[in-house]
Amino acid sequence: MKTSFPSPQSFFRQRRLRLSVVLIILIGIYVLSMTIVNFQTWTSIVKIPAGIIWLFHNFIPTERSISYLGPILYQLWRTLLVSISSTIIASLFSLVFAILGAQTTTPHPVLRIVIRFGASLLRNIPVVAWAMILLFSFKQSDFTGFLALFFMTLGYLTRAFTETIEDLDAEKLQALQAVGANYFQCVFCGVLPEAASTLTSWVLYMIENNLRDATLVGLLTGTGVGFLFDFYFKSFRYDAAGLIVLLIAILVIVLELTSTMIRRAIA
């Protein structure tokens, strides 16, 4: 035992050595993959300034773009509503699934495996794929976008809620069992109040996330602000498209600030 005890010098030497090896491997992977896809790092970097100048030249909203403000705001509003409603409906379902699927609260271990698998399946299909699949059944409508967001959110939040519930102190629930509380009372009086603030944070985060995704989904389902962007873009009205990007960014930031405020208030 004693002979293998390393000196601090050799311990830190080994630490540095390990770090260097990891760095070299990462650089190697970059170089290798760039070679395979034939990507010239230097020439691409050189092109960046010209690209940015073109972008600003064409996408900066002008006085003319203001006339598009009405329809843009209207579609942005609809998109926001779709993302909020799909998140909220999905979070209700997720909460039930999470309670049934979390290790601490599951009524049966088999149910837990089924829910875990289902949630992972829903989550791992990208939202764009959801939109394209659902497009066949529900055509180009807000509802298709709603469903695409709903399924992806359901998978994501079920997982997040399950982990939140599993992270709760099991002893606190035991304390409620010890007073004679039954399963439903433990869930309602113990699990939900303990988890509430974390669950709310997840829902707020998902609303932000879904607003961003909703614009992408809109491109495919032909609805909302995403479609409007596509429409202006393809008819060379870049300034209007730029205005949309700007407004989406502003909305996302406002949403983020609001949810940070709410989170702080309930923490």
Binding site: D169, K172, A175, L176, A178, E194, A196
Partner: peptide, 18 residues
């Protein structure tokens, strides 16, 4: 019913903190 008449307190209190 029996548990209802047996109180229990813990090292970590185990109250529902919020």
């Amino acid at each position: 019913k029996i548990r209802h008449h047996i109180g229990m307190i813990f090292q970590n209190y185990n109250l529902i903190s919020p």
